[in-house]
């Protein structure tokens, strides 16, 4: 029993991490219609930047968080103006996808040049292990669930309840009308990129104490994507629930196999695609003739 609880908590906390990546991707898909292949590298940068600030520059937690958030937002803006903006009028959508692919290589290589290719260690924010009978859990997992929940709910509120969120959605859905109404799509798009980059960056910060900080953190994006597709294409709620599901499946699959852990996750993804191509929460979107 204790083991199952432990696996569930670990699964949910990893799911939270995947959800933060997936949400960022969905927000960008809705705002600019582009799948961002560099989301995983923004996530990885989150781990490196917080490592640099807290370990290399030994900043206190609060200062580190503020500076890190500013840096994430700058990354978001820089990313938008270098990868999306020059190509926004391109008639071939493949060009933007491949450009984000190029960007992911660039970010990864820059990280390698600055921090080297040897993984570094990030100490946990809250040290220690929770022991309840047979259950042994690092506090970091619980911390991830807490912060993750906060961020996810916060993003929901931002986009559903607050004026700025609704403006951003309106601008995402109908660029032309938004411009007519005096909503600057540049600003709203930039805000979306900033939020997306921050979600990814914080995700990287949260997960880094559990793993080593290295360029291979970028591959977490794939799990986030799997969650997004399972949840429903382009739906924020679906992306979160799908990601949590992926986390739990991955965690419980270790009961049966450790070598094929990754393959199990993607196999689930492919099975969902066969049975329900639109995902669990998505609706079929048909192109207008």
């Amino acid at each position: 029993m204790g083991m199952y609880l432990q696996l569930l908590v670990i699964g949910l906390s990893m799911g939270m991490i995947y959800a933060m990546i997936a949400m960022g991707i969905v927000l960008l898909i809705r705002a600019v219609g582009v799948l961002n292949f560099a989301q995983g590298e923004l996530f990885m940068m989150g781990a490196y930047v917080t490592f640099a600030l807290s370990v290399q520059l030994s900043m206190p937690l609060w200062a580190m968080l503020i500076v890190a958030l500013i840096i994430f937002c700058l990354f978001g803006a820089l990313f938008m103006f270098s990868v999306y903006w020059p190509l926004r009028k391109s008639t071939w959508s493949a060009t933007i996808i491949i450009s984000t692919l190029g960007a992911s290589t660039v970010i990864k290589e820059i990280a390698k040049i600055i921090w080297g290719s040897v993984p570094v260690v990030q100490p946990p924010i809250i040290k220690g292990v929770l022991e309840l009978g047979t259950v042994r859990l690092e506090y970091q997992y619980l911390f991830i669930i807490g912060i993750g929940l906060l961020l996810i709910v916060g993003t929901f509120l931002l986009f559903d309840k607050l004026y700025i969120g609704r403006v951003m959605q309106a601008a995402a859905q109908d660029k032309y009308s938004a411009e007519l109404l005096g909503i600057s799509t540049v600003v709203t798009t930039m805000l979306t990129y900033m939020i997306s980059a921050s979600l990814a960056g914080i995700g990287g910060w949260l997960v880094s104490p559990l793993f080593l900080v290295s360029t291979s953190l970028g591959s977490f994006m794939l799990k986030g994507f799997a969650g997004m597709v399972i949840g429903g294409l382009g739906d924020v709620k679906g992306a979160v629930l799908g990601s949590l599901l992926i986390g739990v499946i991955e965690s419980f699959s270790t009961l049966f196999t450790t070598t094929y852990k990754d393959a199990v996750v993607f196999l689930v993804l492919i099975i969902v695609l066969i049975v329900r191509p639109q995902g669990f929460f998505g609706q079929k979107i048909s192109e207008k003739a």
């Binding site: 799948l35 996808i97 994507f225 597709v229 393959a263 993607f266 196999l267 492919i270």
Partner: peptide, 25 residues
């Protein structure tokens, strides 16, 4: 036959998943 039920970018990402699975195998 399975992956091409997805359109556009979602197909693209599913091929990424495929690469991960095949590498693992």
């Amino acid at each position: 036959a399975v992956l091409l039920r997805l359109s556009g970018t979602f197909f693209t990402f599913s091929t990424v998943a495929l690469v991960q699975i095949s590498y693992s195998i």
